[in-house]
Structure formats: C-alpha cells, structure tokens
Design a protein around this nucleic acid. Structure first.
Length: 754
DNA sequence: AACAATATCTTTTTT
DNA sequence: AGATATTGTT
C-alpha cells in the first residue's frame, strides 16, 4: 500500500522530532506547558505505526478520556482508521477492559460492577453501622481515603493490621478499627462482584503480579510499545503496573513517558513526583528530551509563570521560553465581595468580546474549588452569556440518573448490593426500616448478597409481597436483557419501574428536570447502541453490560454539547491539558488558593503553586487574575488576604493600574519614612489643601475609587455597605496603619482622585 | 411508613 | 448558604 507521506515531521522542532523518531528503548519527554506534548505523543504513535508496529501492540495510557479520544482522532488523521486499534485510554478504563476478560482469575465476575465514590462511602457507612461504631468518629470519607491510601501502597487488610505506623496513626486519631472496616469492605466488594476505582488498579496489579495461568506473559507479548501521558500524576501503584506490563526479557524495553514535574497536581491522591525521578534509575539507558519552547502563550504570561515556579525548590531544571509577542499585560482585579467578583468577571467577558472579539468558547473561568462556580453562573446568566460548567455534580451522579442506572446494574449483576439499596424502595413500594433491616441481617449472617437474601428472609406478608414483586421486576429485566439491546432494555426498565410517573405526580419544575435527565440518559443509551465507532477491534459489546462499563468511568467532559459557543467554567484541576485565548483565574486568596488545607505543609503549598502555574499557563493571550476581600464560606463572611501567588508575579507583567502595583508604589514612602523619621508628615498635613478642597457628592463614591480625605489623606474605597444616606464606606488609607476605616459617607467629605 | 422539621456538616482537587 | 442526615410527628 502506498500511503502518502504526510509531512508531519516537518512541522516539529528539532527536539520534538527527535523524541518522535526515537522509537526504541526507554524514553522520557519532559514537556513544559504548551510545548507540543500532545503532538509529540500522537506523532510518535503515528510514526510507530508507519514503521510497521501493529496498532494493537501499542498501549497508550492517559489520565482523561478526553485526552485519549483527542489523541486517537489526531493519530487517525495521520495514519487512517488503524489508529482505532491502538490500546489508548485512561488507566482505569484500559484496566477495566482487561479485567473484564481476566478478572475471573481473581474471583470476579466478567460483568463486575464499578463502584463510584458514593457507592464506596455508602458501603463503608453500612459496615460502620454494623460494627456498631460511631459514624461521627468514623467518617466514611476519611475511612475511604485511608483505605484508598492503603490500596495505592499495596497494603492488604492483613498487612494494614500488622503495620505499626498505620495502626499507631489510627489509634492516635481515635479510629483504631479502620483496619477491620477495610477488611470487611474488601470482602463486601468481592461478594458484590464490585471493584472501586482503586481496585481497577490494584486488581490489575494483582493479576500481573500473582500471574495466574501466566496471564502476564500474554500481555507482555501483546504490547510491544507502551506510552504514558501525564506521568507526573501517576501514583506508585500505577508505576508498578506499568513496569509489570514491560517484557522482562527485553533489556531496554520500549517505554515512553511524557510529563512535566512542574504540573504535578495530584499528590493528594497518591501521585508522586518520585516516579519521574526514579524512572531514571530504573531505566539506566534512558533517553531524555526536554521540550522547552512554548507555542501557546505570550511573553508576559510565560514570564510570570517562570518566575512563580522558581519559588518551588524541587524540580527538574528547565527554562520555558516563547517566540510569541509580548502580548497584553496580566490584569489583576480586586473586589470587595465574592458577588462583586462574579459581576466584574462577567462584565470583563463582555468587554473582551467587544474589544478583542474573543469568542465565548475561547474564554474560561478557572477556580480552585467547584463550589465557587455558582456566583459566576449567576452573573453570566444575567448577561445572557452561554456557559458550561465542568466538574462538580456530573450527569451520572444525579439522583434520578443513578437510580435508573442502579436498576441496570442490578439487572446485570444482582450481587451489586449498593445498587440494590438504592432502588429496593424506589419508587416506593412500602418497604421500610423493619423489613429492610431483616434482609440486611440475613445477608450479613449468611454472607450472601442482599438480592439473594430476599429469598431467604422471613417477612411480614405485606413486605414479603413487595419484595417478591421487586424480585419479579428485576427478573423480568434480566429476561428482557437476554433478548434485547441496551436501549430496549433500558427503556423497558424505565417504563416498568414507573419512575417517570412518580416525577410526573410531583408536578414540580424540579421533577420535570429529572424526567428530562432520564430521557437524555435513554438518549445516551441509544446513541451507545447505534454508535459502533469505538468498538472496532475492541471487545466492548453494545449490550447493557457494555453500556454500564462505558459510563462507569465517564465524566462530564465526555458529554456531547449542543451549544457550541459557550464560556467554560471549571476547576483548575480539570483545566490541565487545555488552553484558551483568555483565562480568568478567580478567588486568588489565601485560604482558598492556596487552600487552607495546605497552608501548614510546605510541600502542599508547592503543589498549590504548581496548580497556579497550570492555571496561568492555560492562557494564550489574555490572563486575568482576581481576588475578593471577603467571601461567603461555610455560611459566614470570611476575610482573606490576597493570595501569595499574586505577589510572586513580577510587577512588569501586570497592568499598570493593578491594585497590588498601586499599593506597592504607595507603600514606598512608608518604608522610606521608616528610615528617615523626619519625612513622616503629620496626618492632618492635607489641611493645607483645604482651600481648594471641594468634596464630591457622597452618591458618587463607589467601590475601588481612589479618594482624598481632608484629614486622613489619600485612600482606596474597599467596600460600601448600606443604601442611600446610610451608606458606609470602608476606606483603606495609604498613610494609616491598622485596619481600614469605616466612614459614613454623608458626613465624610471625600474628593474623588483622577 | 411516610412526611416534616431539625440538626449537622461541608469545601480541595478526580478516575 | 445549601445539601444531606437524623430525628420527630402523624
């Protein structure tokens, strides 16, 4: 076959090209933001394929589905449909796929369920209750994260109990029974035929490590080239798995990792920078390529980013540079309240649209916590700006969607206790605490699933009836599933459960929305059935089981969009790997960004700084940073200082009228004054100007104005409370120590400067 | 058992 | 503040 040689290699710079062409052996690509990392990765895979490597012998692991599908698409553009046969996907989805085939060797059914975080927490809650422990002491979330930590470090329940450090730690925290909860949790997951997110990694490891039926060899031979994206975000378990995938018979295996230590932002879930550092030791013949030229951002943005990141000690030396223009300086916005921040940003978005013709879709608001999205949402809606929020509650996490999915899960895997609990009494069929408790007890004591316990539990006739009906319902779903595709079964389920009728009866706007969600869930199932795009060469079937497998690891990113030109709102974490013309990084305050959780631990501050680095390097042309003096947190108003990260940006990269810049300039005389006390002016020195001092009308005073006070001198209005004649201004006077003053405007006599 | 009222907790980030 | 969990009432 003669394939036209697409000249993609010519579009690469020297280092990029070298990285692409180094086909064999261990390769590490250190790639700064915007340095064409994805290009290198995709072209490398394309290059491998063009040079005779079978696509299905390439394993490429990414962190998000989005990254995977994007890369697949781009490879396909170069090498054609063969690209679809590359094993490309997230760690979790690829491992889930393999475990569907091999999991039986570890005692899991092929149709195992994937427990999401809610399922896990609910199960833990159950166990805590059944052990008669106080759920206020044993918080499910905390327990889960301990278990997760243990799993990521290959610590089994038994080893947990024998590990002094862990046990002492738990005892000190007054939760000495975690090891036992962990043990029960593991048993219950296995009994339910379920894996949680960590299990997808852990069981994959066990499979390769314990190597039943020499299954490891099968995969060692299958994959000749392995590539890992965002390697800085892998945890040690993921690294161990990667190593087990490598053929031990190869002296210098074909493994290529791509990453940037400066963008490592997932240490909270066990990711460790050590993986990058250890990589050099584990693969002595390693070739290293550093991509340092940035093709994304202007000089001001890169300058700021470079300077900020120097505040972190531990990093691989590199210097990011760009040939782009100087560009616009970074805009810094200071507001008094979080509400005002929302308004200012929304206004700015309109301004950027008008002045610079930036499209909505080229703008993104990035925040530290998802909870911050609401205010921006409100103000964007007020200005009729289309927007889309990523993260937070995803579609598949909504109650009604989870309920329908629970019915599907139970149909596929009746052992799935968490699904059972969700729907046993929804819609209501008159089963309450008493009846359910006896079922739970029975299951516990006979060590069987809840579903099977239904057959063996003594119940009141009324309850028995309801339970039998429920069982018959599920059985009819199983029957239907035998003879129908996923969509037919799903609509059958929705119809027979009568969920829609429940919402219809509610007759509220909210219930209407829920019905809509269930309909779009069904649409999604239908799309899955009709769309075999992803199936080529893959063992994913278009039945209900395949569908569940497909959605278990999906996030909001993977939803289809109808509207195309919308402003993006998301957490900084989810923005990794993306770029926008115009980026707004909001909520830059101490205690928020950096998060208060990280303040006391230097390593975590460094991680917050890397997060900030990621945030600002998303911007191509415009970067806006904002902070508010006060905001609602935990239902009360909190005052926070501006984030330390703002001050780490060299002043020459900030717009001239930036609040920090003004403050620094005005601060100078104060510092000098400290050296030369004589220079200190008496506070009322401004009275000299009294003759030509004409105060402005109080109603004209607004927030952020620079004003002159007859007695106190120049200052900045940091806030206004009250209305009309009762308006009180908070004023930060330049020459006054201590907190800002509150002055009733009616009496104040202020002159607006400029 | 179902619903209403009250108490509690949350907020770091994600597969 | 808002969602969720728990308790109280019918």
């Amino acid at each position: 076959m003669v394939r036209k040689k697409i000249d993609y290699l010519a579009s690469l710079n020297e280092v990029q090209r070298a990285a692409v062409e180094s086909m064999e052996g261990a390769v590490m690509v250190i790639a700064g933001p915007g340095s064409g990392k994805t290009r290198v990765l995709t072209y490398r895979i394309a290059y491998l394929i063009e040079n005779g490597i079978e696509p299905w012998r390439i394993l490429a692991l990414t962190f998000t589905n989005k990254a995977a599908s994007e890369m697949k698409e781009r490879i396909e553009q170069v090498v054609g449909p063969g690209a679809r046969k590359v094993w490309m996907g997230t760690f979790h989805s690829i491992f889930a796929r393999i475990l569907r085939v091999e999991g039986h060797r570890l005692g899991y059914p092929n149709d195992f369920t994937i427990y999401d975080t809610d399922d896990s927490k609910n199960l833990i809650k159950d166990i805590i209750n059944s052990m008669q422990l106080d759920p206020k002491v044993y918080k499910p979330g905390v327990v889960l994260s301990r278990i997760s930590m243990a799993k990521s470090n290959l610590i089994t329940p038994k080893r947990y109990a024998n590990n002094d450090d862990l046990m002492v730690y738990d005892r000190m925290n007054r939760v000495p029974m975690i090891f036992q909860i962990y043990e029960k949790y593991t048993e219950r997951c296995l009994r339910a035929g379920a894996m949680d997110f960590d299990d997808l990694l852990l069981q994959m490891f066990r499979l390769l490590y314990q190597n039943p039926d020499n299954v490891r060899e099968k995969y060692n031979l299958a994959f000749s080239h392995i590539l890992v994206d965002e390697f800085q975000d892998t945890n040690s378990l993921q690294y161990e798995i990667i190593k087990l995938f490598l053929d031990p018979n190869r002296e210098n295996p074909n493994i290529c990792i791509v990453g940037d230590d400066a963008q490592s932002i997932y240490s909270f879930r066990g990711a460790t920078i050590d993986n990058i550092l250890n990589f050099e030791k584990d693969f002595p013949q390693l070739q290293v390529f550093k991509l340092e030229q940035n093709y994304r951002s202007t000089k001001h943005i890169i300058g700021a980013a470079n300077k900020v990141i120097t505040n972190n000690d531990r990093q691989i030396q590199k210097k990011i540079w760009t040939e782009e223009l100087e560009g616009h300086k970074i805009k810094l916005i200071k507001t008094v309240t979080d509400t005002e921040e929302g308004k200012r940003i929304a206004d700015l978005i309109v301004e950027y649209k008008n002045r610079f013709h930036v499209k909505n879709s080229d703008m993104a608001i990035l925040y530290r916590t998802n909870a911050q999205s609401r205010i921006f949402e409100e103000h964007l809606r007020r200005l009729n700006l289309p927007y889309k929020i990523y993260g937070g509650l995803s579609f598949y996490q909504r109650k009604e969607v989870k309920d329908v999915v629970a019915y599907m899960r139970l149909t596929i895997n009746p052992l799935d206790d968490e699904a059972f609990k969700r729907v046993i009494n929804f819609p209501k069929r008159g089963l309450g605490g008493v009846a359910l408790n006896s079922i739970f007890m029975k299951a516990e004591q006979a060590n069987i699933s809840l579903y099977h316990a239904c057959f063996e539990t003594e119940l009141s006739p009324k309850a028995k009836n309801a339970v039998n009906e429920f069982i018959r319902l599920i059985e009819s779903f199983m029957q239907k599933n035998q003879e129908s595709n996923a969509y037919e079964t799903a609509s059958y389920i929705v119809k027979k459960t009568g969920i829609m009728e429940v919402f219809k009866a509610e007759n509220t706007l909210e219930a209407f929305g829920r019905m809509e969600n269930i309909n779009s869930l069904l649409d999604g199932v239908q799309e899955f059935v009709e769309n075999d795009e992803f199936t080529e060469g893959e063992p994913v079937e278009r039945n209900l089981s395949g569908y569940l497998q497909n959605i278990a690891l999906l996030t909001d990113f993977d939803q289809k969009e109808e509207e195309t030109d919308f402003v993006t709102l998301m957490s900084v974490h989810s923005a990794k790997g993306l770029e926008f013309d115009c980026i707004f990084v909001v909520g830059l305050e101490e205690n928020l960004f950096p998060s208060y959780m990280s303040l006391s631990i230097p390593e975590q501050i460094d991680e917050e700084r890397r997060l900030f680095y990621v945030a600002i390097t998303r911007a191509k042309r415009f970067l806006v940073l904002s902070y508010a003096n006060s905001r609602y947190q935990y239902g009360e108003i909190r005052m926070n200082d501006p984030s330390r990260f703002i001050e780490e940006i060299p002043i020459e990269h900030l717009e001239d009228n930036s609040p920090i810049k003004q403050k620094l300039i005005l601060d100078k005389p104060k510092i000098l004054g400290g050296i030369k006390p004589l220079d200190k002016k008496p506070v009322n020195d401004y009275s000299k100007e009294a003759q030509n001092f004409i105060p402005d009308h109080p109603d004209k005073i607004e927030e952020n104005m620079r004003i002159l006070h007859l007695k106190f001198g120049p200052g900045t209005i940091t806030g206004i409370e009250g209305y009309k004649e009762n308006r009180i201004a908070r004023i930060d006077f330049d020459n006054l120590e201590g907190p800002e003053k509150r002055i009733v405007l009616k009496y104040a006599k202020l002159k607006i400067l400029q």
